[in-house]
């Protein structure tokens, strides 16, 4: 399964981003193929509609799940309507979140 984690920096020790729309990076993690890549979020500088633009980026990566600290109402709705599950209210580093996710699976 492919999942997305919003992150502050492009490395595994970075904290998970507290926001979705203007999160600096998205980690796209393909858990079966052990394929990980950080995607830059082009929406960080947008004045309005950053959540929608960020969701567009995430959706095009064909992920099934988004993990983030917090997410705006618009982005949440469009992600869920696209069949993507959203888990918010998560803190910690990317590494910790990944391990916790694998354990709880």
């Amino acid at each position: 399964m492919k999942i997305c984690i919003a992150t502050n920096k492009s490395d595994f020790n970075s904290a998970i981003s507290p926001i979705f729309g203007r999160a600096p990076y998205f980690l796209i993690a393909d858990l079966e193929n052990k394929n990980f890549k950080f995607v830059k979020n082009r929406a960080t500088k947008f004045i309005r509609g950053a959540g929608i633009a960020a969701a567009q980026t995430v959706v095009s990566e064909k992920v099934k799940l988004v993990i983030v600290g917090n997410i705006g109402p618009r982005a949440k709705v469009v992600l869920e309507q696209s069949g993507i599950k959203v888990i918010s209210n998560i803190t910690g580093t990317v590494k910790e979140v990944l391990e916790r996710f694998k354990k709880e699976d």
Binding site: A43, G49, A50, I52, A53, A55, Q56, V59, V78, G83
Partner: peptide, 10 residues
């Protein structure tokens, strides 16, 4: 305005 959203093939 980022007012249009489209999921793949939707």
């Amino acid at each position: 305005s980022n007012a249009i959203f489209q999921a793949p093939r939707k």
